[in-house]
Design a protein around this nucleic acid. Structure first.
Lengths: 175, 175
DNA sequence: TATTTAACTGAACAGATGTTCAGAAATAAA
DNA sequence: TTTATTTCTGAACATCTGTTCAGTTAAATA
């Protein structure tokens, strides 16, 4: 997973992966039918993890409170999974079309979680959005950007990052 | 360029590129010393374009006005260059280390353009930011997200997209 | 038109690719 | 210890990879 995240699925060979775990290339085929499903499994497991974890979150409270919960959840969940998140966003084009559709459906489901919160917030007059769908995509992109620059042992800790991002998100949807 | 944007640098062979333009693979080497500099040139030219075009923009006015100008410039410039932008963000890891450094320096310079505006806005009391550097990265990520979903002939035109994004950006940095 | 320059082909190169599989090695069960 | 099962090796496969280059074709110049 780390090799793929670092060099890209297409640039990493089965022999490199095998060497990394200390076996010959042929041995990998006891665990995966082919290279493609190695990629697919990484992404599928990751997306299932995301959806299950988000599903287990508290869904009560005002739209504002739920938006904060989503923001903090997204950051808390994604930061320690840099490789999975990176792969899940960078390697979509290397999925076969059936696999692509499956992963995209799961991602859409996750995005809908945010979209529902935003819609409720607008209905309750807590949020003012120029466009529901675009705001959803924009906020996801904003939060995902975190993974491109955040480094453990960097200037800021998880709690500060959460607070800073929540501040940006909160204001961007404010009335 | 389109092939690389669609399938990724590592997944596209010189023979595929040659076939796309109607020659044999060998003929490409009259135009590029190797595959790597094909990628590098795409990214270098693109970044030079961005920097030159941004440099030519009006730099006067309040921080708020300048931020609006940056937002609209970024969208207007990037939307018709989907392939270049996509490549420039996805293929960094496939650059040799010297080439990587060059492109990263140029990108940093562009980001500094935004960071300077934000800093001035804070100094003038027009913006309230939780963290200067993070806000810079977050806004860039937010704006770049546009390229992942925007489709020509879609629901929204350029002018509407600009307005919607400017609305989000403006509010996220508001006092 | 004849000559010089530029562009392209097609084959060759050494090595890498994903995948298969008979047989060896290691582990678990009897 | 013997047998059964799981795991891994190492070689082989057909094909693809980036790149080079002598020789051919096309375009520009005289």
């Amino acid at each position: 997973m780390h090799l793929i995240a670092r060099h890209g699925y297409a640039a990493v060979s089965m022999r490199q992966i095998a060497a990394e775990v200390g076996v010959q290339a042929g041995a990998l085929y006891n665990y995966t039918p082919n290279k493609q499903s190695l990629l697919f499994d990484i992404m599928r497991v990751h997306m299932e993890d995301v959806l299950a974890s988000w599903d287990a979150q508290d869904k009560t409270g005002t739209a504002l409170k739920r938006l904060e919960r989503f923001t903090r959840f997204h950051i808390t969940f994604n930061l320690p999974r840099a490789d999975e998140v990176f792969i899940s966003y960078m390697e979509m084009r290397n999925l076969s079309s059936e696999n692509f559709d499956q992963i995209e459906t799961m991602r859409r489901k996750y995005e809908t979680g945010l979209e529902d919160i935003l819609r409720d917030g607008v209905a309750q007059g807590q949020f003012a959005l120029p466009d529901l769908r675009i705001t959803t995509m924009a906020l996801i992109a904003l939060l995902n950007g975190l993974n491109t620059w955040y480094r453990e042992n960097g200037r800021l800790g998880l709690a500060e990052v959460e607070r800073i991002y929540w501040d940006l998100v909160r204001k961007s949807v404010a009335v």
